[in-house]
Design a protein around this nucleic acid. Structure first.
Length: 427
RNA sequence: GUGAGCGUAGCUCAGCUGGUAGAGCGCCAGACUGUGGAUCUGGACGUCGCGGGUUCGAAUCCCGUCGCUCACCCCA
């Protein structure tokens, strides 16, 4: 007996994006491109596959991402390759490789595409996920930080995202951060016993994480812990103040988040995140910050930078409810033909309209008119064009507006114009 | 990687303490042979996630496995 063949399914943590969801993604990407272009960012496309060393050196050997989440394999010539877990490293690598620093001034680049991290999937977290990111390289001016955040807030507004919070912090630089960590560790030793179980562990493994604890009972203790902001060196402090002033003068709401910690080693000074309550546990829609030493870590010249990544999966999730329905547009016209004699004329009309970029659907099989209109209705077509014996003879086709039920006879060569004029919406 | 919950028709789900499957929505057809969305009537559709075990008998109980969800962790 033959055994039933098991259906192959998508691999864990990856998924197919299907209509109507894809129309939300298209909307998000269109708007992102528009806003990025408005702020003079230009697109780059880097490989998804990179040398493992790139991420080890930039993101950091000891981070979770590098130490346990990367898809890494030996190529046939034994080179170690990795599916990118993020793209800032790639962007900076490309910046160095193509000597963009020789062009002087600021280089503003953006990218979008899939990233890979082998984590346990859950809502808003996938093994293949998508980011839209941008990097501004070649300046450490605080206005870069402010302008980027301004742009992101604009993007969210354009996408009608309602409830979001901008969280801001400074993680200092290689000069002042170690000093703070020492102080924090010391402070934690005294209060450790009173913290929750998780924090007792974090106090040793990753003291910064204690600051991010959500347990109610721990909050009073955490409040009392030393803050990075109080240990910034003069330069970092000045930068932080300038960023805050910039946001305030532009009327951009933010919340200072002394506990906001980012898990990548290359961050310096400004770090930020925008969260959305609608997302649940994985509530960060986007995040980023400054990385003034990254170029040098990757063998390039000094080139301070600021960048961010938007979690497209999460942003799409937030945008979904509000606009998914209104984005689902059917074809502008459905061609309903009656009888084999009308098929040729119907196909000619469909082709002519389609060549003008008008979205048209047509049946390749004979159907009763009733069924044709039912299909047009189901597809949410705006118009149905009816072509039968009478229409063939007169050369005037019936054009029915499916929203009003109104029907008009239109000269064949006038149909395109009629459709354009009588539809308020885009093709 | 750890812990918990869940996988039954295309979708949302019901199925009590084991007696080999049901509803709503959707789909198809007809009432209505060139006019859709409403109504009525009829119809099709299930590897009960997969594999094994217990049993006379398993969607139901047990074990394993895959997947999803939630939390931890981490981050986008």
């Amino acid at each position: 007996m033959s055994k039933r063949i098991e259906a192959v399914q998508s691999v864990k943590g990856t998924r197919d994006l299907m209509p109507p969801e894809t129309s939300v993604w298209q909307r998000v990407e269109e708007e992102a491109r528009r806003v990025l272009r408005a702020y003079a960012f230009r697109e780059i496309r880097t490989p998804i596959l990179e040398s493992t060393a790139l991420f080890a050196r930039s993101v950091g050997e000891d981070t979770d991402i590098v130490s346990k989440e990367m898809y890494t394999f030996q190529d046939r010539d034994n080179e170690s390759l990795t599916l990118r877990p993020e793209a800032t490293a790639s962007a900076v690598r490309a910046y160095i490789e193509h000597r963009l620093f020789n062009e002087g001034g600021l280089q503003k680049l953006y990218y979008m595409g899939p990233m890979f991290r082998r984590e346990r999937p859950q809502k808003g977290r996938y093994r293949q996920f998508y980011q839209i990111g941008a990097e501004a390289l070649g300046s450490d001016h605080p206005a870069i930080d402010v302008e980027s955040m301004e742009m992101l807030v604009l993007l969210l507004e354009q996408l009608s995202v309602q409830e979001f919070t901008l969280l801001l912090n400074s993680v200092g630089c290689p000069r002042c951060r170690p000093e703070y960590l020492k102080v924090l560790r010391h402070a934690l030793e005294d209060v450790r016993a009173n913290l929750c179980r998780d924090c007792q562990r974090r106090a040793v493994t990753n003291p910064l994480r204690v600051l991010d604890c959500k347990v109610e009972a721990d909050q009073p203790i955490i409040e009392q812990l030393p803050r990075m902001a109080d240990y910034l060196c003069p330069e970092c402090r000045q930068h932080f103040e300038a960023v805050k002033d910039g946001l305030e003068s532009r009327r951009i709401d933010y919340r200072q988040a002394p506990r906001l910690v980012r898990g990548l080693d290359y961050y310096t000074r400004t770090t930020f995140e925008i969260t959305c309550s609608a997302l649940g546990a994985q509530n960060a829609v986007l995040g980023g910050g400054r990385y003034d030493g990254l170029s040098e870590m990757l063998g390039g010249p000094p080139a301070p930078g600021f960048g961010f990544a938007i979690g497209e999966d999460r942003l799409a999730l937030v945008v979904m409810d509000s606009i998914a329905k209104q984005l689902e547009l059917g074809p502008l016209a459905y061609v309903a033909w009656i009888g084999e004699a009308a098929l040729g004329s119907a196909e000619n009309l469909a082709r002519a309209l389609r060549r003008q970029g008008i979205s048209v659907e047509i049946s390749h099989q004979p159907m009763k008119l009733k069924k044709s209109l039912g299909t047009a209705s189901k597809l949410a077509a705006r118009f149905a064009i009816i072509i039968g014996e009478g229409e063939l003879e007169s050369g005037r086709y019936q054009v029915k507006d499916m929203t009003t039920g109104q029907q008009t006879e239109i000269e064949t060569n006038q149909i395109e114009r009629y459709l354009q004029q009588n539809s308020a919406r885009a093709i």
